[in-house]
Nucleic acid binder design. Structure first.
Lengths: 203, 203
DNA sequence: ACCTGAACACCGTTCAAGT
DNA sequence: ACCTGAACACCGTTCAAGT
């Protein structure tokens, strides 16, 4: 693909950030959060362990990139249509995020262990804020509500994952009770937001 | 202090579970979650690393004990008095738990990384259920609500801790904004529970 | 600039042995 | 039963060196 002049070795440019992050994501899926290892990633892409440090300053940076990659897989643009009821849109977005996090066991621990400030994270946050504005919340309340929803989604998944684990990654059995509890809580929460939005604005 | 007969070494019984857990708690306070190490605990109590395995089967068991120890420090009995408004009691309990978790940075990651099923954890859960029953929730709804509150408390603290870190453990600066957001969310949530309790029981 | 080999300072855990 | 010394199979990260 790229030009290979005559000498073989030297700066071979076999890697890039995306390749590393893909390997990390695969490792996360296969071996869980503890399986995401600098040495493991390096081995998977066929390189010496310290070669990773050419692309990332340290492991924490790799994990931040991994989380970003994960959030990029959530298509939040689907929920911007203001003609749909805002409750439905938030519920759908919450379910999507939850599902994406549950697909990669241990991803939540990364989410909760690393400050999430990348572009994809902000994009999801903006979508959420827009929906909440449609719901009639002023900016301050919308910010609080977005944080509250974040807490509920991440907290729910984290606790669910903590209670399972011990088993192999291919735990695909979908616990129906868990999703019911998640939705029950989400709806109580949205009830509370509705009530607050009504008291905030006049009759 | 203890009797030293003639031969010095042998089964010296210098340790017990409590001593180990106290050392682990100190380590958690001083060095954060990653600082809680089998070797570190052993060094702190003056013993070879593998001596710990006489009292705990593995590190995970030590962490479970540590979390239990932590939950034991929350005096939830104070909030059983049914003459006080249930909202106030839940709020006080939530603030207590939150404060206890924030006192030991990294404790939340242990809470979220390990299934919590010990007696102290169950006791806190029972107190919460009792208050929710006083609020007029039937057992099913009370169980869901207790879980929801759990999620909010643990999730809030986890996100807050994740956004700080990087600094030394003695970060005692109390962020006022964080507690306001925590209470705002908690109150939205309680609003939602109130609304649901009213629709559940007749007029 | 990009990669490797070797090393450093750590981990959790196990095993054989001593008392 | 309780503890130690030594070892195993790992970590993340750094450093000097090669191209």
């Amino acid at each position: 693909m790229v030009d290979v002049r005559k000498g073989r070795p030297g700066p071979r440019r076999t890697l890039d950030e995306q390749t590393i992050l893909r390997a990390a994501l695969a490792l996360l899926a296969e071996r869980g959060a503890d399986g995401v290892t600098v040495r493991g990633i390096a081995a998977r892409v066929g390189v010496a362990p310290n070669a990773i440090y050419t692309y990332f300053p340290d492991k924490a940076a790799v994990l931040r990139g991994l989380v970003e990659q994960l959030l990029g897989r959530v298509n939040h643009d689907r929920f911007t249509d203001p003609s749909l009821p805002w409750r439905d849109r938030i519920q759908a977005l919450a379910l999507d995020l939850r599902a994406e996090l549950l697909t990669h066991p241990g991803a939540v621990h990364l989410l909760l262990g690393t400050p999430v400030r990348g572009p994809n994270a902000q994009a999801v946050g903006q979508t959420l804020l827009a929906i909440l504005a449609d719901a009639g919340l002023d900016p301050d309340n919308a910010a609080n509500a977005a944080h509250l929803l974040n807490v509920h989604i991440l907290g729910s998944v984290a606790i669910q994952v903590a209670d399972i684990d011990h088993t192999q990654p291919p735990t695909r059995a979908i616990p129906d009770v868990q999703i019911q509890r998640f939705l029950w809580g989400l709806n109580r929460l949205l009830d509370g937001l509705t009530a607050h939005a009504h008291t905030s604005e006049g009759p």
